[in-house]
């Protein structure tokens, strides 16, 4: 039995299909990433898994409990961090946690111990009696992570826990999640639109685009599954006719994509292709205006499976960004 089993899970809002017949399973003990741009349907999927949104079609089981038939068993067995920051600014760290512990019906003594241990784990011990309005975004997130674990759930579901945090805080959150997972035998389901986060943090990643599953595997295998090991991005002073064919004919080239005068060349051997490229440029009498050589990243995986770039998708989907009801808002 997986920690999460999703079958044909679908959510429609009117004619619009936010989550489109998803099928996947999260295994116990892994960190599973949902990677997708704004509006991909990550939050909607997570809300269905956490009993907040009723699916239009399909089913999901959490730790064996059906989200529609046994919602209360589901709720007891999961810890959830919604996308919006939901800690109370006027309350202290301990008060925030204690109220949630009470909502889960945890008795006093156990409550106290759980709160102390968790605040230590997320490195907020010195801040325990300070009101949350004094906290930075990263500290607030860490507090919410601690809060989500007060009832010792076996599955921890986080919706974009690092969006809006600075790079240092993001890394701190990752480390926190990894160490919590080691200490507590947790299964973690986390959504993100950061490629590097999915890559570094997750054991397996599901790429979601327009509500559909585009690819699912470990970051390593996903990167290996697309042609080429390196990506060369080269810009030229001018582009003579047939230039793309010339590039394709270079040694070890797997694929070439043109974006105006910039070409993305996937290569199975970066150094060799680069050397040959420089020679070809010299012979054609062109000049290079830019050149970068990188290993394949999840970015390239995303482009490969969805046909567009994540950063474009992010730009395009600004219009999607859901009603302000769900926007994380500081007050």
């Amino acid at each position: 039995m997986g920690a999460v089993e999703v079958e044909n899970l679908t959510k429609r809002f009117g004619d619009f299909c936010a989550v489109d017949h998803l099928n996947f399973a999260v295994e116990t003990g892994e960190i599973f990433g949902l990677l997708g741009p704004n509006g991909a349907g990550k939050s909607t999927l997570i809300r269905m898994l956490t009993t907040l949104v009723v699916p239009s079609e399909g089913t999901a089981r959490i730790n064996g409990f059906d989200v529609i038939k046994n919602p209360n068993d589901v709720r007891r067995s999961i810890g959830v961090i919604p996308q919006a920051m939901t800690s109370d600014l006027d309350l202290t760290a301990v008060e925030n946690m204690s109220i949630f512990a009470k909502l889960y019906g945890i008795p006093r003594e156990k409550r106290r111990r759980a709160i102390d241990a968790l605040l230590r784990a997320v490195d907020l011990e010195q801040w325990r009696d300070k009101p949350v309005k004094m906290f930075s975004g990263g500290m607030r997130r860490r507090l919410e992570i601690a809060r989500g674990l007060v009832h010792e759930p076996s599955l921890f579901i986080l919706d974009e826990p690092t969006t809006g945090l600075d790079p240092v805080s993001r890394v701190a959150v990752w480390e926190m999640l990894e160490s919590l997972k080691r200490q507590r035998a947790l299964t973690i389901l986390v959504s993100t639109h950061y490629m590097d986060e999915a890559d570094k943090l997750c054991d397996r990643v599901a790429i979601i685009d327009h509500g559909k599953l585009a690819a699912l595997d470990s970051p390593l295998k996903l990167k290996a599954s697309i042609p080429g090991k390196n990506i060369l991005e080269a810009g030229f002073s001018s582009v003579p006719p047939g230039w793309e064919e010339t590039l394709r004919a270079l040694p070890d080239v797997a694929d070439v994509k043109a974006e105006e005068s910039v070409f993305r060349i996937s290569s199975n051997n970066g150094p060799r292709t680069t050397t040959a490229l420089l020679e070809a440029v010299r012979q054609a009498g062109l000049t290079l205006t830019s050149l970068s050589v990188q290993s394949t990243t999840l970015d390239d995986v995303f482009v490969h499976y969805t046909g567009h770039q994540l950063r474009d998708a992010l730009k395009e989907s600004v219009q999607y960004s859901s009603s302000f009801m769900y926007e994380p808002k500081q007050s």
Binding site: T50, T51, L52, N72, R75, R76, I78, V80, P82, Q83, A84, M85, T86, D88, F100, L103, Y104, G105, F324, M325, Y326, P328, K329, S331
Partner: peptide, 17 residues
């Protein structure tokens, strides 16, 4: 309603209350 809009209720609703 402000709490609801800020998503605070989402926090309540995922608990078994």
């Amino acid at each position: 309603i402000d709490d609801k809009a800020r998503g605070l209720h989402e926090g309540y609703l995922v608990t078994p209350i």
